[in-house]
């Protein structure tokens, strides 16, 4: 009886611990690694649906590329965190960002994998965000951290270029999750991997940082579109020559 009682306690403890571990692993498995860290820091994920790479359906004419799948972002819970070397680090709601002076432009995203696609984008310049957060004089650029754990660096000079935008609207509609809701960069003279999507955080820094693709893939840190060829999805992928920089048509 004494033995049975002793085994019962141990068994209970073992089952309890096993159950607890199983529960924790089951709950946290989708958020393993840095995505889990993002989950802990940014508590605005929506449902269990995931966004990721696709070329199906409506995306046949505008391919979607993400580094990793991630859970859809809840609009009301999302805040853009702006921090780093600035006098007034703060968070912005989507409504606050949409209230900044709006700029519209039609431009093409050129992927390093040869295809390109065009859209009308609407957003704002980083310069207008800087008026609120006041970056310090030593700042050289910004690091973007995204929902798919993608990281990209762009210099202030590149971000201040007249064709570079932080956009929240695409073809008169709010950005879809696939195209980078709630906010993405559009920098049309660089390959698409320099236009991060689903941005969670902007950090002002005083030294360049290598982005995700340039660390794990065969991509240069600069990312300027080189002279070569383009296969525009909206023109039946018909091969055409390009002379480098932004593709204007």
């Amino acid at each position: 009886m004494r033995t049975l009682k002793k085994i019962g306690r141990r068994g209970f403890l073992r089952k309890f611990l096993l159950g607890a571990v199983t529960t924790i692993v089951t709950v946290l498995k989708p958020f393993s690694g840095s995505l889990y860290i993002a989950q802990a820091r940014f508590n605005f994920w929506r449902s269990s649906e995931y966004v990721g790479k696709t070329r199906e359906g409506r995306y046949k004419t505008f391919y979607i590329q993400y580094y990793k799948p991630f859970r859809r972002i809840e609009r009301m819970g999302w805040r853009l965190k702006v921090r780093g070397l600035c006098e007034k680090p703060q968070e912005f709601s989507l409504e606050a960002l949409k209230a900044l002076p709006r700029i519209k432009q039609t431009s093409r995203i050129k992927c390093v994998e040869c295809w390109s696609a065009k859209a009308e984008w609407e957003g704002f310049s980083l310069l207008d965000l800087e008026k609120a957060v006041q970056p310090r004089p030593e700042v050289l650029g910004v690091i973007f951290r995204c929902a798919d754990t993608y990281v990209e660096y762009l210099s202030l000079k590149e971000m201040h270029h007249e064709r570079t935008l932080l956009v929240h609207t695409m073809n008169q509609e709010p950005l879809s999750d696939e195209h980078g809701f709630p906010m993405r960069v559009i920098i049309p003279f660089k390959y698409g991997y320099k236009s991060p999507k689903a941005i969670l955080e902007i950090e002002f820094v005083d030294r360049p940082k290598r982005g995700t693709w340039t660390q794990i893939g065969p991509y240069s840190t600069d990312g300027t579109i080189l002279p070569g060829y383009d296969h525009p999805l909206d023109q039946g992928k018909k091969r055409r020559r390009i002379f480098g920089g932004e593709i204007r048509d």
Partner: peptide, 23 residues
Amino acid sequence: HLDYEYSRVYEFIEVAPEKAYIF
């Protein structure tokens, strides 16, 4: 990327003279 590595000697590009590119 996914393209030829060397240009042929007759190839050319046209660039606006005020532009400055890394390439």
